[in-house]
Amino acid sequence: MIRTAIVLALTVLCSLNVSRAMAIERSELQLASVNAAVAYADDEGLVYGKNADRRVPIASITKLMTALVVMESGEPLTEWLDFRERHIPAPANAYTRIRVSSELRRSDVLRIALMSSENFAAHTLARHHPGGYDAFIEAMNAKAVELGMLKTTFVDPTGLSVDNRSTAADLVRLVRAASQYPQIREYSTTRYFTAQFRQPRYRLAFGNTNVLVHRESWGVGISKTGYLSEAGRCLVMLFELDGKPLVTVLLDSLGTRSPMGDAGRIKRWLTTGAGGSVAAAARAYERKKNAAYAASDGASVSVN
């Protein structure tokens, strides 16, 4: 009798919790990012999409695919790689503090490419791929097809080219695949790192480009930022929300901190239903970019 009462009480409590969860009335989510996608890592489909199927430049978000190809190549992470003079011109400004001819272990080259978005590091990883640079680009595109990223194209490993294009929905697939590698999770969320180069021997300090990795409350499991003038400010993340891994893809924002602000708005929207608000300048930027996208390829604006 007592056991039956306990079971009944627990059933009622669970029903109340479900009812409360279902009772959350969500306002329309307001984001500064022009294109976005939100999904639980373990579920198919999107929780939210904003122009999620629009093909756009993705800047250094590219480096997540670079990391995935490196890991799947099976090449030893302990191998020392030399930084060779570029064999092709960089598509955009590629300033680096790394000295030509110096060496660094592949694991650390990958780490600084992810956490600090070091372009020379990403380029060097491709140069040392079996078959060389061109084979690396082919592997990037082959992996995209394998993952079902059918609207994605890569032409370089850094993201400096505006011809590296994808969609927010496709990038959700990329984050899910990258999250299967503990090294990518660790390297992309490293807060600070001092790289120890040799020949010549010197050190360089690097910091993570995403301020949210420094906040324990976020539990960030994967992070990658990106920026080109044509791509705007971009951010992809995997973080824990109520015990479930959530993927957020935020593409083309005006301000440096706008994607981080959007991540916070998404988090509040899912937990409280509050849609938030964005600055007037962000709204104006979005209208301008939507008009430019429509003019260039006839893309229609859709919010799901």
Rank of each mutant, 00 (worst) to 15 (best):
A144W: 09
F197S: 03
M149A: 05
L147C: 06
M115H: 02
F154N: 08
Y181N: 15
N141C: 12
Q183Y: 14
Y181G: 13
A113K: 02
G131I: 10
P200S: 02
Y192F: 14
A113H: 03
P182L: 09
T194A: 12
E146M: 08
L114P: 09
H129I: 12
R198K: 10
A168D: 10
E118Q: 11
A121G: 13
R185F: 03
A178E: 13
T152S: 12
Q199S: 12
T167A: 02
T152Y: 01
A139L: 13
T124W: 00
M149R: 07
E138F: 04
Q199C: 11
A126P: 12
S116H: 06
Y192R: 15
L171R: 01
T153K: 09
L114V: 02
R173C: 13
F136T: 07
L147K: 08
Y133T: 02
V172D: 10
P130L: 12
V172W: 04
Q196D: 15
N119L: 06
A177V: 07
T189P: 02
H128A: 05
A139P: 10
P182T: 04
R165F: 07
L150W: 09
F136K: 02
G159I: 09
T152D: 10
D163H: 08
I112G: 00
Q199G: 10
N164K: 15
L110W: 07
